[in-house]
Design a protein around this nucleic acid. Structure first.
Lengths: 131, 131
DNA sequence: ACTTGACTTAGAGTTACTCTAAAGCCATAA
DNA sequence: TTATGGCTTTAGAGTAACTCTAAGTCAAGT
């Protein structure tokens, strides 16, 4: 049993975001205790994990809601859920490619600046220096 | 020489976003022709590339503006720029790790759903099915 | 001359948070 | 017993970064 705060810490998402997601209907199955406090079970964390994953890959909240709703409907929606996950996985792979390129550029620039500092030389690449 | 539209296409960023970035002062060096049309030179694309990279890694626009301003100031800011790029590179590496984990989860789920479909079996993992 | 299409701007609208304020519940210190 | 602090809740205001719309300029084609 976890409170929102504990879930937030465990899953590395802000409390605000967990509450926002809860309000958005992403966790329709989370119970409350007699004081109206949300009690996330171990199982519920699995849902936080998948929501975090989908958001992390840039799936919008409306689509996430739809996915959750398909889960609620049950086994008749497995094919549809499969399609969503597949498309999301493809999207994530594209992002991975992008991120690799960005990392390369950052590595290049870090190196470049590092050399400049070491050799105390001018930044000849910076177009501002050509004016 | 490229118009906003051409830059947008070449760099895979929307025209709106290029204009928004321009308005935000990310390209203070781009010239206009006599009709007030922006003319991006080859060199300028380098700047679009680095802005896209920084944004892609989640650096906020205020920080990007600051980086641009440091570039404008010139060689005295090389160390400061180095620090920014280094921190950004570290951030990107963290994201790479995250993305890998997310990709694993998506692969797992895609596989899982695929098995369900192939074997025409029940989705016993879905907590909604346990209620 | 008129329409088409590419470009411009200001500013409204949208998404997904992110934060604030007000209030409820409970434990412990004075 | 009161109050102080710490936790939770909600509604709703605020923010970042787009994203889109409307209204305008201009040059070229028919």
């Amino acid at each position: 049993m976890y409170t929102v705060k504990e879930v937030a810490k465990k899953m590395e998402v802000s409390e605000h975001t967990i509450r926002f997601w809860a309000k958005s209907g992403f966790f329709p199955f989370v119970k409350r205790n007699s004081n109206n406090i949300r009690q996330f079970e171990e199982n519920d964390l699995e849902w936080v994990r998948i929501v975090k994953c989908l958001r992390g890959v840039g799936i919008d909240n409306k689509s996430i809601k739809k996915y959750i709703e398909l889960c609620i409907i049950g086994d008749s929606t497995i094919k549809e859920r499969y399609d969503i996950i597949k498309k999301t996985r493809e999207k994530a792979q594209k992002q991975m490619k992008e991120l690799k390129k960005q990392l390369e550029l950052l590595n290049f620039k870090e190196n470049y600046y590092n050399e400049l500092i070491k050799n105390n030389s001018k930044d000849t690449w910076n177009p501002m220096n050509k004016k």
